[in-house]
Design a protein around this nucleic acid. Structure first.
Lengths: 253, 253
DNA sequence: TCCTGTGAATGTCTTCACAGCC
DNA sequence: GGCTGTGAAGACATTCACAGGA
């Protein structure tokens, strides 16, 4: 039986459990990593509903995947379930939070305070989930000095200092496409190895850094591709609706 | 920007390509579909630089993938290249635009005009790329009736009518997580089969509909997972860990 | 009996390597 | 010679199916 989780959960900051670090630590497949936050969210919801135990099947249902996948995914974290019973919600939540690095804060800098950047700065969803917006930077002289969502916009040149001062861990690129690569280089040079790119541009980073992208235009084009196929298939086939263009979206690269 | 295909349709000057329309129409892998917009963007940039011909290698470099992948991906669209030469930028752009459904507009409704919804409405990047924001809806009485970015916010109940009136093809969900599934159901019932979900919730749609999701919290958690691993790996590897940001071998595209 | 954890089977995607055409 | 298009090989991911512990 797993050690009761309420022993750990309280620990907000202290590296009290850091000795739990010596687990197997196998390599976790990328596809699995991308689903962990999904399970985390589900577990959080279940905990809020006072559910203390959950089966892979129930978890799967909530997360919108199949049960075998859940079991395999969770098995990469360790053997945290109990055969015949299921998973202890609180304990699994603790293990997963630790694995996802949610036991600490990861301050964020937003680069590019235009429409999107400002919206992101105002978007509350970051801070209360462990990703406080710690700094805003831009190069536009008309924007530098302004206050957006309680933060003064600084010049991009000050970024290295701010990274050091605020312990910034994540950089969000919300600039136009043309400057995205340049900004990424500056972020990496300043020691920010985690980057989330909103600019519609291909950005590359050295292997020690991680980059994720969010590209609205791209998502819309993918949708219209399928929509397009649908319509023209209908034209070609007459009214054959069973010829499905199986698109199980989800995922992003 | 991508609409160069639109120009084609009207253009009488260009070669007689319009009859290439009746191709085999094989199934295109999802992974490939997700990259087509990337190639499209690259091609558009090349066209702007007056480049008329491009090799798979060059295309790959720009799009941040490898050349074999580009060739395989493009081969799903048809044999549009010339051996020993490469791909005609304009022709490929035309074919790809058509395939991605960019020869027509796909009007968008944004559901949920909070922080994010309003930002999306204001974000210009949609309209000029063939995805005009045609309607805004919400359920909050204090929001209904307001004008955001030139559009009056209507009540969710009016959605079916608006879908019909404006030929809405894509629904963007920017509501809180709790209402996301409900909104998706309403969209599908109204005939909107393409949905982009920004709410941090698992949403499912019937097989004839397509769903893509954009989840900021999820992306951040994936980033912090890798960041976390990095740090604790450094701890395990002993004290004399060399600089993490040692070599800056950026493979810029 | 119930449900996890995991080898094995299957399916999907990527990469290689080269035949075929310009 | 150069570059595309594509079978074949390999890597990766998902799903099956069942052994094994509670």
């Amino acid at each position: 039986m797993p050690p009761s989780a309420r022993d750990f959960v309280k620990s907000t900051a202290g590296p009290v459990w850091s000795d739990a670090v010596d687990r197997p630590r196998r390599r976790i497949p990328e596809a699995t990593v991308a689903r962990l936050p999904l399970y985390l969210r589900t577990l959080t919801e279940l905990q809020a509903e006072q559910v203390t135990n959950v089966s892979s099947e129930r978890l799967a249902e909530h997360a919108g995947v199949n049960a075998a996948k859940v079991r395999k995914d969770l098995s990469f974290l360790g053997s945290y379930g109990t055969r015949g019973v299921g998973y202890d919600v609180e304990y699994l939540l603790f293990q997963m939070s630790r694995e996802l690095g949610l036991t600490q804060n990861w301050p964020v800098v937003i680069v590019g305070i235009g429409n999107l950047g400002a919206a992101l700065a105002n978007y509350g969803g970051f801070g209360d989930r462990g990703y406080p917006v710690a700094a805003l930077v831009d190069t536009d002289p008309t924007k530098v000095g302004r206050v957006v969502s309680g933060h003064t916009v600084h010049h991009l040149d000050e970024l290295p200092r701010m990274v050091a001062d605020y312990g910034i861990a994540i950089g969000v690129i919300a600039t136009p496409a043309e400057t995205a690569q340049e900004v990424a280089d500056i972020l990496v040079a300043a020691g920010v190895t985690s980057i989330l790119n909103f600019a519609p541009a291909v950005v590359s980073v050295p292997p020690e850094a991680s980059l994720r992208k969010v590209d609205l235009a791209l998502e819309l084009q993918i949708l219209s591709f399928y929509r397009q196929r649908e319509s023209s298939a209908a034209l070609l086939d007459g009214a054959d609706s069973t010829e499905l263009v199986a698109d199980r979206s989800i995922t992003s690269a």
